[in-house]
């Protein structure tokens, strides 16, 4: 999907990404996805469809899961964004990242960043989800490789590890 760039000027847009304040110069209608990937070099956020169907561009914006391909960057002004690059602490992986590795939640990996952020969002709202709740909670994120089982197991495992920790 593209947006007309003619007839409107670039604006200065500031937001916090993975804990750092960032300023982008972008057309107001430019997609948050493109600004993250192209201006901020945060290429962990992926594009699968460009129309809000696949969820591979998922990021957290003020704690809410959004499809960054549908968010005009202007809307991100002043917000706090978390992308896949912001989940691990240095070399220490987030519990979900560990669980995805251990349970086979990532095959080709292209859906994985979005899937992990959707899972993080799910666990933030429901720290101990049932399998059914995980199935429903991730149904906005498409994965063509795994058939989802090992993703669902990874999320359940992460929830379990978190409650033990």
């Amino acid at each position: 999907m593209t947006h007309s760039r003619e007839g409107c000027a670039k604006a200065e847009i500031s937001f916090t990404v993975n804990g750092e304040l960032k300023t982008a110069h972008a057309y107001p209608m430019e997609r948050l996805l493109d600004v993250l990937r192209q201006q901020l070099q945060l290429t962990g956020t992926k594009e699968g469809c460009g129309e809000g169907e696949c969820g591979s561009c998922s990021v957290l914006m003020d704690g809410i899961l959004v499809n960054s391909c549908l968010v005009p960057v202007l809307q991100a002004q002043g917000s706090t964004i978390v992308t896949i690059e912001g989940l691990a602490t240095g070399e220490t992986l987030h519990v979900l990242q560990e669980a995805f590795l251990d349970c086979g939640g990532a095959q080709c990996g292209i859906c994985t960043p979005g899937m992990i952020l959707a899972s993080a969002h799910l666990l933030n709202g429901k720290p101990e989800p049932t399998i059914e709740e995980i199935r429903e909670g991730l149904s906005g994120n498409l994965c063509r490789c795994t058939g989802y089982s090992q993703i669902i197991e990874a999320v359940a495992e992460a929830a379990r590890r978190r409650t033990i920790a």
């Binding site: 962990g44 690059e85 992986l93 990242q97 590795l101 939640g105 994985t112």
Partner: peptide, 22 residues
């Protein structure tokens, strides 16, 4: 044995380089 997959860590951290990332 189910050893860790070679490129697993890069995939879960978003570091893997797909062609559009280049």
């Amino acid at each position: 044995n189910s050893v860790p997959r070679k490129e697993g860590r890069d995939k879960v951290t978003g570091r893997s380089q797909y062609v559009d990332d280049m």
